[in-house]
């Protein structure tokens, strides 16, 4: 009973560098390190399920440690209900869906070692957070300072001015900057393909290292521009069915013109 009033003595969490320097790791620590490696370089450390050139850290900035940059200290929020799939999501399902949607890959099985490792890393980042309470600067900020509808034409001008030096004119990315559209980028089912979310992410974090230098309207416009670019289809749609729909549409166009 006495203990209740005392502050919890939380042992300082070892940094990733400290973990890497250790000669002996327990099961949890080795999974944390494996998860960190996967988050930092997904195509290399989780090649089996990754389908494009993106790494987790491209959106969950700095390995999921950046406030307002989709931080990963969210283990306490799961399991939670999500509108995206309409079921109660454990952290494992959440991670597996990231492989399917954002990495445009193959959904790993629930017991895939890659999933367990990333879950361990997320758990590690969440130490000290309160279960059930959203951490501060969770996700991306919601933009309230926009006063016009998103304008992709304006967005293209913003892109050419502020983004093109890292992400290239064709959106394929230069060096460590990720591809923003095209076959090597996220699919149409990814969270980043949501204009509001992408706008909040861009405003708070882009250009990298100079976050909040664009106006909120500019961020919204550039997000709309990205949304219009070609990218892999949403895995919720069957590719064949999509193709057939397009074919029927095209046929309808031909007959309509006559």
């Amino acid at each position: 009973m006495l203990l209740v009033g005392l502050p919890l003595a939380v042992a300082a969490r070892p940094t990733i560098e400290e973990l890497k320097a250790r000669s002996v790791l327990d099961d949890y620590e080795s999974n944390v390190l494996h998860g960190y490696d996967i988050v930092m370089d997904t195509p290399r450390h989780a090649p089996r399920y990754s389908g494009n050139r993106l790494s987790c850290t491209n959106c969950h900035l700095a390995g999921g440690t950046t406030p307002d940059g989709l931080p990963l200290n969210v283990a306490g929020l799961y399991p939670r209900w999500r509108a995206k799939n309409g079921v109660r999501n454990g952290i494992g399902l959440r991670i597996r869906e990231c492989f399917l949607y954002s990495h445009n890959g193959v959904m790993p099985p629930a017991d895939a070692p890659e999933v367990l490792a990333v879950a361990a890393y997320i758990n590690y980042l969440s130490e000290g957070e309160v279960i059930g309470k959203p951490p501060k600067h969770w996700g991306v900020p919601t933009l309230t300072g926009t006063n016009q509808d998103p304008n992709p034409a304006m967005g293209e001008m913003v892109y050419r001015r502020a983004c093109v030096s890292c992400h290239a004119a064709d959106g394929s990315g230069v060096g460590s900057a990720p591809p923003l559209w095209g076959p090597a980028s996220y699919s149409a089912g990814a969270g980043m393909n949501n204009v509001q979310k992408a706008a909040g992410f861009i405003w708070a974090n882009m250009p990298l290292g100079a976050g909040r230098s664009l106006t909120q309207q500019e961020a919204l416009d550039v997000a709309a521009y990205l949304h219009l670019q070609g990218r892999p289809v949403d895995p919720r749609d069957g590719r064949l069915r999509k193709l057939a729909e397009r074919f029927v549409h095209w046929l309808g166009g031909l007959t309509g013109r006559r």
Partner: peptide
Amino acid sequence: WVIDGVVGPVQSQVELLGRVV
């Protein structure tokens, strides 16, 4: 592949092999 193409991987929930490196 036909099942995957028609109903999509999310609906079918069929486990795939993944990339062989």
